[in-house]
Amino acid sequence: MRTGRWLAAVPMAALALATVYPLVFTTNVALKTRHEYVLDRFSPADSPQVDNLATAWGSVGMARYLTNSLVVVTCAVALLLVLGSMAGFALGRLRFRGSRTLYLGCLAALFVPFQVVMVPLARTMAALGLIDTRPGLVLAYVAQFLPFTIFLMASYYAHIPVEIVDAARIDGNTLFGVYRRIMLPIGVPALISVGILNALFCWNDVLIALLLMPSAENRTLMVGVTSLRGQYSDDIPTFAAGVLIAAVPVLLVYLFFQRHIVQGVTAGSTKG
């Protein structure tokens, strides 16, 4: 078994290298001049320079795309957490007429992928005058990720002892007061995980943003990245620099919140 472990470690280390290398390669390319890249794309950058990053940042409106993404993702996640924790508390911890049906309805929505409803959704959004607007995209993200949020919050609240709810109500709290003064604070650990996960989902989305935000100035960062290739097809280092800029926020989130992300991902699996 001992030698076996070392034998397994070798291919696993190779795989780890293959996991990291694409990003290392891209970073290295982004730090090269165009001339240097054409001569040799693999060698470490001679004199690493940030001109490409500056070019990519300046010329394609990345700052604007970044603002769009930040605003939309922040609003969507805030709404998701409020609506998701309210519904999660009610459906996971309370029993009332129709609660089970409502919960199953929310779960059923988990199996309706965006691709299946995108055509009628685009029509509904257009009818509501929400196409090409930030509120429209926020609403679409909330609708997309709310079932998952409710599912996780409901299973979290299901483990809060019911005596806590009872005691708070005997103290004269209304049900909404119980939610606001007790369930919301108790739910913070779960809300952090679910919030980070939702932020990643929204931030990384491209299909919904492409569909609902047709005009160039409303692009999110990920849609902006897809337009980089056409713009810099003969200037790969600048293209790589743009990709890198778009990847950095997510990599930072990963470094700081890895534990929360993993908890959010696995929370669904242990409950089935």
Partner: peptide, 11 residues
């Protein structure tokens, strides 16, 4: 609010 969003924009 949650049910409204899910029904109107998903189901």
């Amino acid at each position: 609010p949650a049910v409204l969003v899910i029904v109107v924009l998903r189901l």
